[in-house]
């Protein structure tokens, strides 16, 4: 059985956060048809609540498809810039890990990511500039957590958004 050191956890979590943040905001800016692929497919938990839970400027959006649709059809130009990114491991071991490899252990944690940045709206350079705060709980893209997996070629997203809270803060 493989166990991860604290440095392993830091390496995995920070690498994942950086990659995720780059891809996610690039998608918001310019690849909006891919937005829903960043989120967990909608699942209902035993307690009746659904995931993913997207809280956007105070509004609860409960599925990624309609979230993406609003971005595609209604959102004007945006240019997001993540100016500060930080990540912690939320749960270091989300499923029992008897006799699994280190590689599996690295994909058996959940992450909490906090982003602070600015977004230019409506118009390049001249549009209004807002400050935002965004935070995510990321889970590995595996069938066990409700994801569809990364595919045979490992091409899909490695981490999916289970929970998000976004706010304009300036």
């Amino acid at each position: 059985m493989a166990t991860l050191t604290e440095v392993d956890y830091t390496r995995v979590s920070t690498d994942a956060a950086e990659r995720f943040v780059d891809l996610y905001y690039t998608a918001l800016n310019g690849a909006r048809n891919t937005i829903s692929s960043f989120y967990l497919p909608t699942v209902t938990q035993e307690n009746g609540r659904t995931l993913p839970h997207i809280s956007y400027n105070g509004e609860h959006v409960s599925d990624a498809k309609s979230f993406q649709e609003r971005w595609e059809k209604q959102m004007p130009y945006t240019h997001f810039e993540a100016q500060s990114v930080n990540v912690h491991v939320m749960n270091p071991c989300i499923l029992p890990m008897e006799g699994k490899s280190k590689r599996d252990a690295e994909r058996n944690m959940s992450l909490i990511v906090q982003v602070s940045g600015s977004v230019r709206l409506e118009e390049r350079k001249a549009g209004p500039l807002r400050g935002f705060s965004d935070s995510f709980i990321l889970v590995p893209n595996k069938e066990e957590v409700g994801g569809r997996g990364t595919g045979k070629q490992d091409t899909g997203k490695k981490w999916l958004i289970q929970s998000q809270t976004f706010r304009f803060v300036v």
Binding site: G58, W71, M75, P76, L121
Partner: peptide, 10 residues
């Protein structure tokens, strides 16, 4: 600002 955004401030 933001009034035309599909995610109004709530």
């Amino acid at each position: 600002k933001g009034a035309e955004l599909p995610f109004p401030i709530r």
